[in-house]
Design a protein around this nucleic acid. Structure first.
Lengths: 231, 231
DNA sequence: TGCGAAGTATATCAACTGATTGACAATATC
DNA sequence: GATATTGTCAATCAGTTGATATACTTCGCA
């Protein structure tokens, strides 16, 4: 005897879908600024204009909602950097890119990273920066997926480029360290205190481009100074 | 009639002093890994081997304890970077340092910063890194003093150096941005997830020096590529 | 030795947390 | 229109939080 087929699934109803989305967006904003422990489900429910049990109804638990919010952020990050990661792998697999080509690819990746952190025209910009900062501080397993996205699609291809510049394997410690340092130049801009110190409330396209061009300049200077051990 | 002079003040008793220190050290470790909201006074009291009211007795409140822990971290940071900041101001006030001299001073500051974040032989190394990371994420006023130490004794003198290299004022936006990027290379190493990704549990003197020399190399490469607008 | 302050321990408070219950309203299929 | 399912609501649960009241012990000093 077959199980009864439910014709309606959660999220199917237009009203329910809207509620779900409203909860997720509110949770994203609150979790990003207050963290998991610092945000209460009551606060989320109130600001989202729903009742408390709606959270359990749609996301199972507070942690389920947290995971959903992080997955959302992770998807956005992936969307921004994965295409460039793929191009890097292709270029490295294909043949022997020249030094300027390698540097250009690295700069492209860094540009994407800075857009991700700074471009206010992209949705949930601030939440994304804060969640990335939170990965270092909050040690819930719930944040692991976001960390893994960054490791696999940002650090790995970037250090592959730096490794090629140095004529060393991508997992060589010096290569990874140098890559982290280069990326650190961009990462500093997902710090809330830094942005406040700059007085940058709204950021705007011109500032994004200014930061990108400066980091590119620095990165190029670093990479051109790199000497491969064979040389 | 004068107020009675208390011959004993809190903290005077050897036993009490020891209790106070034990609470502070435990709180430092727990706050740094769990944050303010994520750490309960009960947990602190239990792990420190004291009762719950001892916290109120010695520090007034949970927030008082938090502030004391941060002040402790701030003192350590100040101790590490203030002497170098003073040397930078002296060098800039005195005359016209050459480009290599300016770069050497900047590298010294960065070396100190990296020691502060990585040198396990210094007390409470990990707590310090985590608290510095927390400045970006937790927005309590309690963390402001730590932020201010970094701004005044790290960012300000460093951007004064970079400003001199670029022939621009220290508060010029491009100068500040470049300085932040350069410091970002070091700051990335107070990230717990980065250290875990490297598999660096214990760090050791050789690793500290390795990171220092690589960041110095990058910083020199960046600074030498800087062109002053007059040139 | 006895007094008073320094420091510790137990028990308890009010507030808040995440979660659940069970009743009610809206909706799509038959 | 009947009915099962989806979505919403107020009321409430048990557990934890920071803080306190209060009684107790320890210690320096006269």
């Amino acid at each position: 005897m077959p199980l009864p087929v439910h014709r309606y699934r959660p999220g199917t109803h237009p009203r329910g879908e809207d509620t779900r989305r409203r909860i997720l967006e509110t949770a994203l904003a609150l979790f990003s600024s207050g963290g998991f422990e610092g945000t209460s489900t009551r606060d989320i429910a109130e600001r989202a204009g729903v009742n408390l049990p709606a959270i359990q109804y749609y996301f199972g638990s507070k942690e389920g909602l947290y995971r959903a919010a992080i997955a959302h952020i992770g998807d956005q990050a992936l969307q921004a950097i994965e295409p460039i990661a793929a191009r890097i792998w292709r270029a490295l697999d294909a043949g022997m890119p020249t030094q300027p080509e390698l540097i250009a690819l690295l700069c492209e990746m860094i540009d994407a990273l800075i857009s991700l952190f700074l471009d206010d025209s992209l949705p949930e910009r601030e939440s994304r920066s804060l969640f990335v900062s939170r990965v270092e501080v909050e040690h819930t397993a719930a944040l692991d997926p976001l960390n893994e996205v960054m490791r696999q699609h940002l650090l790995a291809p970037s250090s592959a480029l730096v490794g090629r510049l140095l004529n060393r394997p991508a997992d060589d410690e010096q290569v990874v360290l140098r890559t982290l340092m280069i990326l650190g130049q961009a990462k500093i801009f997902c710090s809330r205190s830094v942005m406040r110190g700059l007085g940058w409330n709204a950021i705007g396209e011109s500032r994004v481009r200014a930061v990108q061009s400066l980091v590119n300049e620095h990165t190029s200077a670093i990479c051109r100074a790199l000497k491969s051990p064979a040389a």
